[in-house]
Computed example of a mutant assay.
Amino acid sequence: MRHSILSNFSRFFYTISSLKPFKSRTLSRRLSPVLGPSPYRSFSQTSTMFKVGDDFEKIQASRPDFKHDVPVTFSKPPKPDWKEGDGANDGGESLKKNHVEIDPHEDGRPVTSNYKLLISGMVPRPIALISTRSKDGKTTNLAPFSYSQVINHDPPLFVVGFVGSLEKAKDTLKNLAETEECVINIISEHFVEAANATAINTPYGVSEWDVSGLTQAPSSVVQAARVKESIMSVEGKLVETKEFESRTTPGKKTGVLAIIEGVRFWVRDDAINEEKSIVDLKVLKPISRLGGISYGRTTDAIEIPRPQF
């Protein structure tokens, strides 16, 4: 199974983080070996965090409609008068809380617990909607990955993480490894449903372009197509891959890291400044990845100047 932004059971469904949760969850009381009895922990995430039940359509229907015209608003930081040495802005409240220590490889802990923990805690994450073409040029692929990030600008470098092995590589990783080319497309609000549809587990050779209804646009340097609807796309060349071995099942290859160099940038003309150096957030309206089947949108921002020593 390839690593995509959704697990198999949650494909084709999504929630927007800014919408009001349908209901909260409470975990049962449990014992901590360090802290003793822990209090009930109330979660504000939706009840469909990692599982879509038969009542999902009812839950979705109870939520407010998506507001397309929500502007990006800049507000003051939480403590505008913060000065050097002040620490957290909560008056010390966070220091009164305790933490639970978790060994990712403790006996009896399934690896899925690590997966859920990481994708719900390491948020928001950028999504790389990656388009590739097979080595023989006969098939195309489009899939989203939230184990992704830009890591350098000279040269422009990106990393993408794939669950699985090179030997049993599926779709995107197979094409990327064989052709050493791809396009990384950024997801915006206006095509989030179509991007989500590309997470479907189609067999190799079946194109997600058709499933999503997204439009292929020609690239300049690589053979793979850009997503025409994407406000920003990056043509990429594979630099190298590194395979990782499972800690719980020694000898089993469970992950592949791909380092990709950006060789061409494409930005929609109404989203780029005259110097071609800044993408307008108000036009980009990027969609980020949260835990479970949740997505986030960026409508609030703050500005804090970097300190100088």
Rank of each mutant, 00 (worst) to 15 (best):
243 E>R: 00
177 A>G: 00
309 F>L: 15
188 S>F: 05
204 Y>H: 09
245 E>V: 14
200 I>G: 15
194 A>G: 06
275 E>P: 03
20 K>W: 01
252 K>Y: 09
122 M>G: 01
93 E>I: 14
4 S>T: 15
27 L>D: 07
217 A>N: 01
288 S>E: 07
7 S>V: 04
78 P>K: 10
62 S>N: 11
270 D>L: 05
33 P>D: 08
160 V>R: 07
67 K>A: 12
218 P>A: 12
258 A>P: 09
35 L>V: 00
162 F>G: 06
197 A>H: 06
183 V>F: 02
282 K>N: 15
247 R>F: 09
227 V>T: 03
286 P>N: 06
109 R>D: 10
227 V>D: 03
257 L>Y: 04
107 D>M: 07
119 I>Y: 06
32 S>R: 06
203 P>V: 10
82 W>P: 05
191 F>H: 14
131 S>Y: 05
187 I>A: 03
196 N>E: 05
17 S>R: 09
227 V>L: 03
149 Q>S: 12
175 N>S: 07
147 Y>K: 01
55 D>L: 07
116 K>S: 13
63 R>T: 01
137 G>Q: 06
97 K>R: 15
233 S>G: 05
247 R>T: 13
133 R>W: 00
218 P>W: 12
214 L>Y: 01
172 T>L: 03
54 D>T: 09
11 R>K: 14
88 A>G: 14
68 H>I: 12
55 D>A: 13
203 P>M: 11
112 T>F: 15
91 G>N: 12
244 F>I: 08
23 K>R: 14
86 D>P: 08
76 K>Y: 01
275 E>V: 09
78 P>N: 09
72 V>N: 06
225 A>T: 09
69 D>C: 04
29 R>L: 13
251 G>I: 04
281 L>Q: 07
148 S>M: 04
237 K>N: 12
276 K>V: 00
166 L>A: 08
280 D>W: 00
36 G>F: 06
123 V>Q: 09
305 P>M: 10
258 A>Q: 09
234 V>G: 03
180 E>Y: 06
200 I>V: 14
297 R>T: 14
259 I>N: 11
282 K>R: 14
5 I>C: 07
241 T>F: 11
22 F>H: 10
203 P>I: 11
263 V>N: 01
89 N>G: 06
165 S>M: 02
178 E>T: 00
301 A>I: 12
293 I>S: 09
261 E>N: 02
161 G>P: 04
126 P>D: 04
22 F>T: 08
167 E>D: 12
136 D>P: 06
252 K>M: 13
207 S>D: 14
17 S>Q: 11
145 F>P: 01
296 G>N: 13
35 L>T: 02
66 F>P: 00
120 S>K: 02
25 R>F: 05
258 A>H: 09
207 S>C: 09
13 F>N: 15
308 Q>A: 11
161 G>K: 05
40 Y>A: 07
151 I>A: 00
110 P>C: 11
193 E>R: 12
